[in-house]
C-alpha cells in the first residue's frame, strides 16, 4: 500500500500494460524476456530520473536529447575503434555531461534565464557544435568494450540493467537525503525554501548537473545498444519529460516522487512495446501514443481533491 501511495496511479497503469504485453507474448514472463524489456527501457528510465530532479525543482531540461547525441557522436569519433581509448573517453563523456549540466544550472540560476530557454539554447548549441566538429555526420566507430555496457550481459543479467538498478537506487537514496528535501522545497515554494535556509540556486544547479550525468549514462548505454547515428537522441527530451509527468510529477515543481517518475518511463516503454506487439508500429504509433499520454495525465488530474488550480 505504501508503494501505491508514493508511486500513485502510475503503477496500476504499468501493471495493466505489462499484463497486456504478457498476454500477447508469453516470452515476456520468462526472465530473459523481461530482462530484455528492462534493458531496452534502461536509458529512458535513467533519463527520466535525471529529468525528475530538474522538474521537481521547478525547471525543465530540454537539452538532454541533444546531449545524448553529443555523447554518442563524440565517443565514436574519439574512440574510432581503438579499444585502449575506451576508458578515457568514458571519463570524458561523464565530464561533458556534468559540465553541460553545470552550465545549464548556472545560466538558469545566476543569470535568471528561464530554464526552458537556457536548455533550448543549449540544445541548439550542442547539436550545432558536435556536427560542426564532425562535419555534418557521425564519424568513427565505438569499441567493443564501450558497447559492453549497452549490449552485453554479466552472467544472466545485462549490464544496462545493473547500471539501471544502481542509478535508480542512487536516485531514490538522493531524494531521501537532505538534498532531496531541499530540492522539493525549492520547487514547491522558492521563497519559503530560501527563507528557511535552502540555497535554492545551488540546489537547482545540482539538479541540472544530475540531469547532465543521467544523459551521459543514457548516452553510453544507447551508444552500445543502438549504435552510432545522428538521430540517437532525437526527441528523448520530450520522452523523458512525458515519462516524468506520466509518473504524476507536477510540471512547475514541488510534487511527485522519483520512483514514480521512473515508473512513468517504464510505462512509456511498455506502451511502445505493446503498440509494436499489436502491430500499430510505424506512423499511427505516434497518434496512439499522443492520445494515451493526454488521457493518462488527464486521469491523474481528475484524482485531485476538488481544488481550483491555476493551471499554467
Amino acid at each position: 500500500m505504501r508503494a501505491l501511495r508514493t508511486l500513485g496511479p502510475i503503477v496500476v497503469v504499468l501493471a495493466v500494460l505489462l499484463a497486456l504485453i504478457a498476454a500477447a507474448n508469453p516470452f515476456f514472463l520468462e526472465p530473459a524476456g523481461f530482462l530484455a524489456f528492462l534493458k531496452r527501457a534502461a536509458p529512458l528510465v535513467i533519463l527520466a530520473a535525471g529529468q525528475y530532479f530538474v522538474i521537481v525543482s521547478g525547471e525543465f531540461d530540454l537539452s538532454v536529447g541533444s546531449l545524448v547525441t553529443v555523447q554518442v557522436v563524440v565517443a565514436a569519433r574519439l574512440i574510432d575503434g581503438d579499444e585502449a581509448a575506451t576508458w578515457p573517453v568514458l571519463a570524458l563523456l561523464v565530464a561533458i555531461g556534468l559540465l553541460i549540466g553545470l552550465a545549464n544550472g548556472v545560466i538558469t540560476t545566476a543569470l535568471r534565464v528561464p530554464s526552458f530557454i537556457t536548455t533550448l539554447g543549449m540544445m541548439l548549441v550542442l547539436s550545432g557544435a558536435v556536427f560542426l566538429w564532425t562535419g555534418g555526420a557521425p564519424r568513427g566507430a565505438l569499441s567493443e568494450a564501450f558497447r559492453t555496457f549497452g549490449r552485453k550481459d554479466l552472467g544472466p543479467v545485462p549490464w544496462s540493467v545493473l547500471i539501471l538498478l544502481a542509478a535508480g537506487g542512487a536516485a531514490i537514496a538522493l531524494m531521501r537525503s537532505d538534498f532531496g528535501r531541499r530540492l522539493v522545497a525549492a520547487g514547491d515554494n522558492e521563497r519559503a525554501a530560501s527563507l528557511s535556509g535552502v540555497r535554492v540556486n545551488r540546489t537547482r544547479t545540482l539538479a541540472f548537473v544530475l540531469s547532465g550525468l543521467a544523459a551521459a549514462v543514457a548516452g553510453i548505454l544507447l551508444g552500445g545498444f543502438a549504435g552510432v547515428s545522428a538521430q540517437v537522441g532525437q526527441g528523448l527530451e520530450f520522452q523523458a519529460i512525458t515519462a516524468v509527468v506520466l509518473g504524476g510529477v507536477a510540471l512547475g515543481g514541488g510534487r511527485g516522487s522519483v520512483a514514480a517518475a521512473m515508473a512513468g518511463a517504464f510505462t512509456l516503454e511498455a506502451l511502445f512495446t505493446l503498440l509494436n506487439l499489436y502491430g500499430i508500429s510505424g506512423a499511427l504509433e505516434f497518434a496512439v501514443q499522443g492520445v494515451i499520454i493526454i488521457a493518462a495525465v488527464a486521469a491523474g488530474a481528475v484524482r485531485l481533491p476538488l481544488r481550483r488550480t491555476a493551471h499554467v
Binding site: I241, L251, G252, I294, A301
Partner: peptide, 27 residues
C-alpha cells in the same frame, strides 16, 4: 479544451496533440 477541462499541463497537452497529428500525417 484539453488544457482547461481535462486540466492537463499545456506542455503535455500540446505535445500530445502534436504526436497525434504527426501520426496521422506519417500514416
Amino acid at each position: 479544451l484539453v488544457i482547461t477541462r481535462l486540466q492537463v499541463h499545456a506542455f503535455i497537452a500540446t505535445l500530445g496533440t502534436a504526436l497525434i497529428v504527426k501520426g496521422v500525417l506519417d500514416h
